[in-house]
Design a protein around this nucleic acid. Sequence first.
RNA 1: GCAGAUGUGGCGAAACUGGCAGACGCACAGGACUUAAAAUCCUGCGGACUAACCCUCCGUGCCGGUUCGAUUCCGGCCAUCUGCACCA
Length: 804
Amino acid sequence: MSYNFKEIEKKWQNKWEKEGTFNAKNDYTMKKWYGLIEFPYPSGQGLHVGHPRSYTALDIIARKRRLEGYNVLYPIGFDAFGLPAENYAIKTNIHPRVVTAQNIEHFRQQLKSIGFSFDWSREINTTEPDYYKWSQWIFIQLFKNGLAYKATMPINYCTGCKVGLANEEVVNGVCERCGSPVVQKEKSQWMLKITDYAEKLLKDLDDVNYLEKIKIQQRNWIGRSEGAQVKFKIANSDEELEVYTTRPDTMFGATYMVVAPEHPIISKLQNKITNMDEIEKYKEETAKKSDFERTEIEKDKTGVEIKGIKAINPANGKEIPIWISDYVLITYGTGAIMAVPAHDERDFAFATKFGLPIIQVITNKENSVSVEKEAYVSKEDGYVINSDFLNGLSVKEAIDKMIKFLEDKKIGTKKVNYKLRDWVFSRQRYWGEPIPMVHCEKCGWVPLDEKDLPLVLPEVEEFKPGENGESPLAALNEWIKTTCPHCGGPAERETDTMPQWAGSSWYFLRYIDPHNNKEFASKEALNYWLPVDWYNGGMEHTTLHLLYSRFWHKFLYDIGEVPTKEPYAKRTSHGMILGGNGEKMSKSKGNVVNPDDIVEEFGADTFRTYEMFLGPFDQATPWSMESLRGCSKFLDRVWNLQTILVDGDSYSPDFDKMMNKAIKKISQDFEDMKFNTAVATLMTMLNEFYRLKRINKAEFSTFLILLNPIAPHISEELYSIIGNSKTIAESSWPTYDEAKTIDDEIELPIQINGKLKGTVIIVKDSEEDVVKQLVHDKISNLIDGKNIVKEIYVKNKIYNIVVK
RNA sequence: GCAGAUGUGGCGAAACUGGCAGACGCACAGGACUUAAAAUCCUGCGGACUAACCCUCCGUGCCGGUUCGAUUCCGGCCAUCUGCACCA
């Protein structure tokens, strides 16, 4: 018999909403637990089945924590600024605010229908002035502390639409919408100096409980390296070219230099350069490529020699040519490299293509290295040759000696470098937080007075970005004209807006005290709730959102605004849910599953159970309608346990053991996010109840509490039906007796030569001679007359006999 | 190219710290109930061998190694997925 999930789920959801069952308490004497999921971007498509995977997982932990007596904060909100709403506005001229409000309403209703235990009283929305006031406030603090600055950075510029584009909108070098070529266009933009925090962001990873793969990804992204920064003189000139290298030991093998096409040395020395035409042409071609293309495509190296100037290798004083090539990026290091083709793969490819000299300076112990066909890049067991005063040293020794040489001569220093780049914070867009800065002729860039926040996003007629890649706000002359907060003279507002990352970089702080209009959150509340105890989200956010929000938080810590160094004590990650065909769900593939349909047909509890059962939580798994029905059947069987409900005590000690083991297993599985095996354990329990055709009230109640975090509605309903006066939400998490989880008899496997030949029942912790006798009796027919070489007994695990 | 991950039945998967490979579920097959179907319940279900059962052998992407014993550890390959900023 099926149960009426529609009625039951509605009933409990209404009760929870009416009573505020899951709202966090303002009792700061209680032990607390703060669980966080990545708040959704309210897209027009509505909730994806991927969202509930993460939300159900932490909902399970949140519900368990409440039953364990914690004051739980499990909040929800909407990250509602963003491109899709703006692009929709451009098409339809409907204000993004209107569309966003509709989408949020839809999301809210969808989320509520799944029965998450969110504290809805703390819902936030990044597009509300009350919220982004504080995003702007934090930006001003960053500016005041020298961490926000203006710099000229390229944007993607569509030559057809004449607007700036996000990376996402550039597909294969052309505009996604009109197909016109996209070029890089220089633009003055706000930058945030995340690189100042590189060392802290790296080091403090040691103190947080993130999945190891997340730490590794962040470390690689920050990309700390040690090396040397070295000045190369330009022959017959006062100019110098500075390079960064991690291999100063190979400097005698540097046979040429390469600078990024955008490098300022070119314009500085243009009078000496004899092939400016050729260089300009190459620069133009480079501008057509996004960074993405320059780095992604496995292509032949291209480049142009800068004729008329030469550099001097400071190691040996030899003149070497200077080239430009797009494989050198202006944004990393100094934008220039010394090329050592014998010991760097890219340099090797470049030198081979353009016939540049290759000088080997590193060999191995056996001196069997050849750099005829490929570069020798190993740093281990390398020894220096052909390098004057470095000859015979190991790579490590040579690095130190060369750095000392450079420092003595004052032409170079030891230098730590990071791959991490500063954060481009300007967007030439409408639907974002206005940047609260004005430009005054006299005072330069000045932040708004904090009492004048929020700087409200003004109304516009036209959402289309302006020509030349300006923001739509650039057309609002009246709005732009303002007075300088510093000197009172005429000034102009910044017209770019913040990126979507801004609102999400600190939202977890606002949840803590969402209605505070004096501060982003009170000190008292921050002290109590921080840090976030557990944050679950997608791996795709590891290097951007996760790092950005750590950066903002660390900054706020340094200026005394938050009490913890790190925002998140623990970070875990969920795998993607794929379509039934094993491919990523997408409209074009027609394999999208809509959560609403599942909830409508099978109910929220089945949906939640299936999302947790479908596979290991951290791995990508395909959706299967058949398996979903299996979960529906499971809940029907749970409902029908009522038919075998009996009075009386536990059935047997063994049965009691099964219950204790299950409590232990499920409790631990939840903590380890092994939800699939937790569900499997519940199914096994259920099978056992039916096998014995009995369950008493105490057992049923325990079973329902264990099931409750996964399937909260049906479990509450049954809990009440079987006569409990309190609800599960008012009860506590079951405990188990460790002694009752241990078997006193063990079925010991017997192997001969590592192959299973049988089993024997032994008393737990039996001594070897006792077991030996039992084993020999059991398999005497297999070992009689055989030459026993060795016998291995691993207590309570295995007995293995080696025969010849 | 770099980085991270993954690879186990027809399918999703499980397996503690190196110790009985395949728990749980789906699909499938047979049976019960039913006038019949659906639903439900019961039984079986890695492969080879076998009429069938037992036995035996093979089996965790491939090749090798360590070990009494390897899905698990080590080396080398192959394939797939994800991310990327050619990171000097």
